[in-house]
Design a protein around this nucleic acid. Structure first.
Lengths: 118, 118
DNA sequence: TATCTACATATAGCCAGCCTACATGTAGAC
DNA sequence: GTCTACATGTAGGCTGGCTATATGTAGATA
């Protein structure tokens, strides 16, 4: 997965994973890996700063917890974040439709042209 | 359309538009606008540098032409570029499947949970 | 004549954000 | 005592899409 491709979609991914239940950073990374069938192995250097950014904006809130002698910062979706996620989802749908449409349109036209000419 | 979202997908778009026929920069911008139903209005400051980059890599070749007193630099897909486009297309399909899958999975689970609980 | 719009290309420099690389520490297995 | 998994974090790099600007032609319109 080309890192650049994730630009602008990371937020949706993170908020989405937190939609069901609060999770800490490490668990979020594992959840993304699992839910993507192993395709999305996001480095900690991406996730932790992104979570802080999302908290700063107000889409997430966090609190510390100690589980089994380990400290975790657990992130939770705020109302604002939940609302924002809806927007991200529809933005994604439009994005995928537009890009996919342009890419497919060309392929279809080319094969149609080849069929017509050949 | 959030600019950041285009990161890493611009190349595929440009190569795709040039698949059928050679075009000059301005025409490429118009083609993207048209083929996306008006959604993709890419600024010249994005397209021209990107075309030069793609030519430098070897995916495109260009030549100058004068049409109606105006100078145009016409870009054409090279064999290498055509091959690369195939890769871009399958990369896009995987990307869209993965991201879309994660986003949809969450939405589905949440509504399933809501249905189950309420 | 001047001005405006569409056509057409180009570059400098900004900036967001994802990444690599590294630092730090605990728990449990071996 | 060493290794791996768990867990969080930051500094700094890099890339590439963007804004803003410069330059110039052609044709319409006032």
């Amino acid at each position: 997965m080309n890192p650049d491709a994730l630009r602008g979609h990371m937020d949706a991914l993170l908020l989405s994973v937190l939609e069901r239940e609060p999770l800490h950073g490490y668990a979020i990374i594992e959840a993304l890996l699992e839910r993507s069938g192993g395709a999305l192995n996001v480095p900690t250097g991406t996730v932790y700063p992104a979570l802080r950014r999302l908290e700063r904006i107000g889409y997430l809130s966090s609190e510390w917890a100690t589980v089994g002698g380990r400290k975790r910062r657990t992130y939770r979706l705020t109302d604002s974040g939940r609302k924002h996620l809806e927007g991200e989802r529809s933005a994604w749908r439009e994005f995928a439709t537009v890009i996919g449409g342009v890419l497919r349109a060309e392929a279809a036209e080319v094969s149609a042209a080849r069929a017509a000419n050949g």
